[in-house]
Design a binder for these strands. Sequence first.
DNA 1: AAGTGGTCTAGACCACGCC
DNA 2: GCGTGGTCTAGACCACTTC
Lengths: 261, 261
Amino acid sequence: MRQEHGSPDSELRYRRVAAELREAIIAGEYATGAKLPPEGTLAERYGVSRGTIRHALAVLRSDGLVTSRRGTPRTVLGGPRAQSFSELLSFTNWARSIGETPGGRLDRVVRRPAEPFEAGQLGLEPGAEVYLVLRLRTLSGEPVMVERSLYPARVGALVAELPPDVVSHTEALVTHGVLFTDADHTIDLAWADSDDARLLECPPGQVLLRERRRTTDPAGVPVEWSEDRYLPGTIAFTVHNSVATSTLGRRHRPGTATPGA
Amino acid sequence: MRQEHGSPDSELRYRRVAAELREAIIAGEYATGAKLPPEGTLAERYGVSRGTIRHALAVLRSDGLVTSRRGTPRTVLGGPRAQSFSELLSFTNWARSIGETPGGRLDRVVRRPAEPFEAGQLGLEPGAEVYLVLRLRTLSGEPVMVERSLYPARVGALVAELPPDVVSHTEALVTHGVLFTDADHTIDLAWADSDDARLLECPPGQVLLRERRRTTDPAGVPVEWSEDRYLPGTIAFTVHNSVATSTLGRRHRPGTATPGA
DNA sequence: AAGTGGTCTAGACCACGCC
DNA sequence: GCGTGGTCTAGACCACTTC
């Protein structure tokens, strides 16, 4: 059998299968806890190879929709169907979702050549022009996080033209056709430099919770690299994973930072 | 050519390849920003098929170690040791996967009634018996993390009977039929108490990176609740996520009804 | 023993980036 | 045009769970 790659609208088979299965699950065709048909049956039903079915099911599994364990049929998982992704990407949306009022104060925008590390993260050549945007983010007026976002010139030019009082840069970029679809996050510690100390109103050297994030569009082209530094006690990161899937979220911790148990 | 599935220790090819590539990157064989050899070349070099190479590279990609974009060679994204949530990894497996030698020193095992909070996390009634296991974890002999694991009696009894020199409690439990399939993680900061300070050989009050984790079996029954505290600079956590393919993948032109089917 | 998902192969064509 | 990674196929065997 020959595959038909040149489909009219170049629809990908595994995506099509994944979408149909997802709709079937959401439509209730497969209830929570129900068993999915075996891969072989699905392959026959959709007229594709088992490999393609597995690719599609990997997508669903990574969305947390179905289980997968050797020896047993896949089962449908209940739970939140919502996109935790937009919340995770945008500080603004996350803040709103927990009932807080997000704010931001633009500190400065710098247009300069990329350093080697930055160029690597953004997939540019060293020395290519990038925009660095430094902002203080607040919850109900209280300083919470310093955000250093680095954009390639193409995207940065859009950001630089935003009015200074725009709260959500991410939302603004989306309306300009910049898509955020994939992100890699790294979480560890950092110590406040002079910018952090000034904006967060804390002593220099104060320990901070750091999240570095590399975001790409659907084609895998980097659109943003950001380093966010949170005051301790203001936030915790949460991750859920089942076998091979993970969903990142944030959790706000109102009040004071209670030292360890 | 025939694959040899029944390898002596049932080592998985794609994991082996992923581990070797990761070591090569960490060893500096491939510097940050360097291009990886094409998949075909790697397949030949490691004596496996291209599919297996792709499987291995998918692991590295989800660990945030390498890029992947059609048309261009994969490049190395430098960075510190990171613990990925792409797979539900125990400390032991993670250490091995980055080419380090994991170690552990059992400090004490306490059998006592669960406090209210603990009972809630483990789905038990307050006062139910639990086992607290306190261990120092090391990488190549260096103190890295203090692990406080809480088990319900059923599981804890198994742990308590393990020889003190067992490195991976998780693996040991799996062989006893205890399955770990789902986990919720919370990451924030904590400060070293006297136990932490003694085991990690750091001053009390030292800031630590804290991961709290609740793990359940396939049926959703809690099997472990753990609080791990890492010395700063020894670890970073990584998460990858992406937009659900159907949510934003297809755009509707204005004026059309919501796509039902 | 039967059936399931997990791994692996050896081919092929396609879309994309770069020269 | 050429090389890259992305997709796809049609087989195969293996490990695990369940009956």
